[in-house]
Design a protein around this nucleic acid. Structure first.
Lengths: 226, 226
DNA sequence: TGTAGAATGTGATTTATATCACAATTTTAC
DNA sequence: GTAAAATTGTGATATAAATCACATTCTACA
């Protein structure tokens, strides 16, 4: 499968800063791999040898907690999957798993480092993204620890609708167990809250399809934490 | 107050990658300011115009949560205080306050960007640090959400001893309220656990001075989460 | 197309910890 | 040096949500 990064429609913001020649070279140093829903993309504890980048699909980043798995965040396409784990340590500090069928681009780490060294606009953009990621993770953590389950579920629904699927109607690919691991709540609590929201007319659920009906109410619940 | 970064004993790892000339120039683009315990160093919501760097003392990074403040992390000397907040957004996304009397170096952001552009070893080190920070924040969050209060307090005591004060005996500059905000527990719970640990002979407390007596037991409690 | 396994729904019970309400102590400031 | 303020200690009570224990419903695939 011949890849031409130059014509790739899934470029990251950082990659838009690359020159034609750099993109040409990148083509020779990356490899696209397809993953089925549920497949492991990066495994915590193994050596990290490539920069992984999500071209299409959806993935979850998760780490082992003392009690159970914690889903750290959901990554949508046109984003790197493992920069912190690739550059922060030789060994992957977290796992990444496909939530939907996904295409992942693996970029040779040596070439990636070369790009960082040569193209300052590129490295600058990477720094900006890392910074944003860290701030986002702080915010996520506060939400997880301070809000009650209703607030956390409202959060996650709004995040899916606003940032991931860009629609008030979407198919929840993630199951309730994982949803619980994402916001730190039990599977049962997620189920209860989701159905409560349905009964209260805030959302409509049929199977895996969710439609947000009263977004402003959800925003209210998200903001106040209950 | 004339500053010569070249002879500064508090250089960050990234700064050790700078050339003599760059350090010379840095001297002209930074300013050291002293803060008293409790003083605000960076304020959430204000414009971020400088890169802040902790030369001495101790500081806490905190953000406003829906219910109460969350202390995100404690920063020890020779570390940047606000890279993510400085590069991720125009407006500071969190606050930083001195926990002990501290000296903070404010570096002109334009010059800092110039350094990133010119010295690749420097920018590379900054990227590594950002990556480590993000992974650390994931880990902290799991600990906060999954461990019970005993485990979280054990965590924090070990962190102070191993990473901040580098001694089994240290003076806790942070009060129990903040300690609670750091690990997500109530002030009262912190008080109870601290005294329990004392009664169980794991630590010795007199006033603000803490001595870790049975470190291995604390590690056990930290690991298992209770 | 039927059946095993996965995912979800829901009541009852338990549990860790927050909250409340003070007392006691320590620190700060005048 | 003492009053006021801040911090800490501790019992009683309340509470959100976990856990348990099933019932029910989906889903895959042989």
């Amino acid at each position: 499968m011949e890849n031409k990064c130059e014509f790739c429609n899934y470029k990251s913001v950082a990659e838009t800063k690359l020159t034609e020649r750099e993109l040409e070279e990148l083509s020779c140093n990356c490899l696209t791999v397809s993953f089925k829903k549920g497949d492991s993309i990066i495994r915590q504890g193994t050596y990290s040898t490539n920069v992984a980048y999500l071209k299409s699909g959806l993935a979850k980043i998760h780490i082992e907690g003392p009690y159970h798995v914690q889903v750290v965040r959901i990554v949508k396409p046109a984003n790197y999957l493992g920069l912190p784990t690739t550059f922060g340590d030789k060994v992957n500090q977290y796992s990444v798993t496909a939530v939907e069928n996904s295409e992942v681009c693996f970029i040779d780490i040596t070439y990636f480092r070369k790009l960082l060294a040569l193209n300052h606009d590129f490295s600058n953009q990477i720094i900006v993204e890392l910074c944003k990621g860290e701030i986002e993770s702080y915010q996520k953590c506060v939400n997880r620890t301070q809000k009650q389950v209703r607030g956390k579920v409202a959060d996650v629904l709004l995040d899916f609708s606003d940032n991931i699927y860009h629609s008030d109607k979407f198919v929840l690919q993630i199951n309730q167990e994982d949803l619980g691991n994402l916001v730190d709540a039990s599977r049962e609590s997620i189920s209860r809250v989701l159905n409560d929201f349905g009964r209260e007319g805030l959302i409509k659920i049929s199977g895996k399809e969710v439609e947000i009906v009263k977004k402003s109410m959800l925003q209210m619940i998200s903001k106040h934490g209950w």
